[in-house]
């Protein structure tokens, strides 16, 4: 049984997804992390999601992530974020405005699924 579970979690599609969300100060994205996490758990998706401000972004990026999400209000800095993400070979996308908030979980999860 233990072996079976192990095999299951090793399969790529069930493997835990690591998502990094970057906003200006890491405050509003913390709310979004909570909403996304709740929605993902509901669907049985295992995730590790972290919120950072622009200052910590580059240092955190090297920890290895499956996806970087950029908060809509800092989308004008996408080019700078992208450069670092490409170096770390991590896909990056801007969150849809409607998905960015405490009630945006379902919408954001849908966007995440399309990206991963």
């Amino acid at each position: 049984m233990v072996l079976y579970v192990k095999q299951l979690t090793n399969r790529g599609d069930i493997r835990m997804k690591k998502i990094l969300i970057v906003c200006s100060g890491g405050m509003s994205s913390a709310i979004v992390v909570k909403a996304l996490k709740k929605e993902a758990t509901k669907e049985g998706m295992e995730t590790e999601i972290k919120a950072v401000g622009t200052g910590e972004y580059e240092d955190t990026l090297s920890n290895g992530w499956d996806l970087v999400l950029v908060a809509p209000q800092v989308r004008h800095r996408l080019d700078v974020f992208k450069e670092a993400a490409e170096e770390a070979e991590t896909p990056i996308a801007v969150i849809d405005a409607q998905g960015y908030g405490p009630l945006g979980g379902p919408k954001l999860l849908q966007q995440v699924k399309e990206l991963i």
Binding site: S28, I31, Q73, Q98, G101, P102, L103
Partner: peptide, 21 residues
């Protein structure tokens, strides 16, 4: 519903939930 979810962040001056919500 959005008001209830945004009031505590709002008191702490975080208003992305209401601007985008």
């Amino acid at each position: 519903k959005l008001g209830k979810a945004s009031i505590i962040p709002g008191i702490c001056n975080i208003n992305e939930p209401v601007i985008f919500g």
